[in-house]
Write a protein that binds this DNA or RNA. Sequence first.
DNA 1: GTGGTCTAGACCACC
DNA 2: GTGGTCTAGACCACT
Lengths: 122, 122, 122, 122
Amino acid sequence: MLQLDYRDARPIYEQVKEGLRRMVIVGAIAQGEQLPSVRNLARSLAINPNTIQRAYDSLENEGYIYSQPGRGTFACSPEGVDEGRKEGLLTQFDQVTTELLYLQVSPEVLIGRVQEKGGMQI
Amino acid sequence: MLQLDYRDARPIYEQVKEGLRRMVIVGAIAQGEQLPSVRNLARSLAINPNTIQRAYDSLENEGYIYSQPGRGTFACSPEGVDEGRKEGLLTQFDQVTTELLYLQVSPEVLIGRVQEKGGMQI
Amino acid sequence: MLQLDYRDARPIYEQVKEGLRRMVIVGAIAQGEQLPSVRNLARSLAINPNTIQRAYDSLENEGYIYSQPGRGTFACSPEGVDEGRKEGLLTQFDQVTTELLYLQVSPEVLIGRVQEKGGMQI
Amino acid sequence: MLQLDYRDARPIYEQVKEGLRRMVIVGAIAQGEQLPSVRNLARSLAINPNTIQRAYDSLENEGYIYSQPGRGTFACSPEGVDEGRKEGLLTQFDQVTTELLYLQVSPEVLIGRVQEKGGMQI
DNA sequence: GTGGTCTAGACCACC
DNA sequence: GTGGTCTAGACCACT
């Protein structure tokens, strides 16, 4: 359910963090649903619980998940997510778009990809 | 013309690389136009020429610029850019788009941003 | 009339306590007015009466409310409030003010906010 | 230069974090100035370097300090501080102000305290 | 020397 | 059982 790559330059806690974020975003972990416990995930990934805890902490203060000591960790609804992150993503979107258009990818292709995910009528 | 941020976690050569890439992409450096010489840029940024050279080498490797020994370094046309980079950008585009849609940004907003840059008729 | 957030890290009794304190402060519960009974409030919030009782006890201890056994619980007038709390709030006020000024918020803005609440003539 | 209180309910890393934040805010650590190294501070406070690191990490992603691996950790200028924190502080300012006014502290007293710190002419 | 990451193992409070 | 904190000690990359 979550792949680690030890040859990757990114630290493990960040790979865990991005993997979990992805799962929340695509709905693999639904809003309000419980995430695997720190210890369980650590065991199943064969890494130290502290490393998982660090990923969870970081995701929590970005507003993607929340923890209740003694109960578990759960996925938030999208409203609570840090505004700064949204702005950063929009900047990233603009930069990637600019470069793709420069590389002769047509706007229609990009728009098509947005609509595909957005479930829009054409 | 190119801003360095010593507080940024990214290494300097990468900041130079991305800065130059940006200038080519947005047309601040037109296709075929000559880039500043390694020594000049190094002097004006007050950093080591080796750092500049590393950025130039990396950009040449990705097909954004080419150098003619004895003459200088020039911006490529977009066709020559490494295919792998284009694929990587498309993947990044999809991921960023997915997350923005999850964060309740409407598809129309994203499409509007694409059209703005693409100069499309609606 | 009082919102609980189970995702909040603070314990429930503290959320109840702060919520009631807020209502007294802003006048939603006037001086001398009766607060809801422990059992009623517990039922309407769907939590344990002990939790409510703990919040009431703590507020009574700080001098914000008083209870008359067999009659109910009522809001105090502000004079009776624990002096220690006032000092603590002043310290907090100074610290928050210092940080906001450091963050380039102008003194005029802060003063404006005080006057707005205080109903002062300029 | 920084006091720990083991009887305090707050975790140590948070006490360190708030202590350092205070020092930056009041100018005890000037903008751009180097903070004590992780190891040195850990030794002088007789706690584990990991605990210090955690405090530094947290302050860094709030924008109060920045780290350069191999060189050290330095105080930021106030412009870079996370917007969310500023908003939170303003909310806190309003709440504390409301309660102090309720407790019969006159607006003039509060305004005087703001001006004192703000270096304003009356 | 510096910050950054990771592990192993412990203890706490809460449920 | 759960998350949260802390320690001790190791290793890495960079200056």
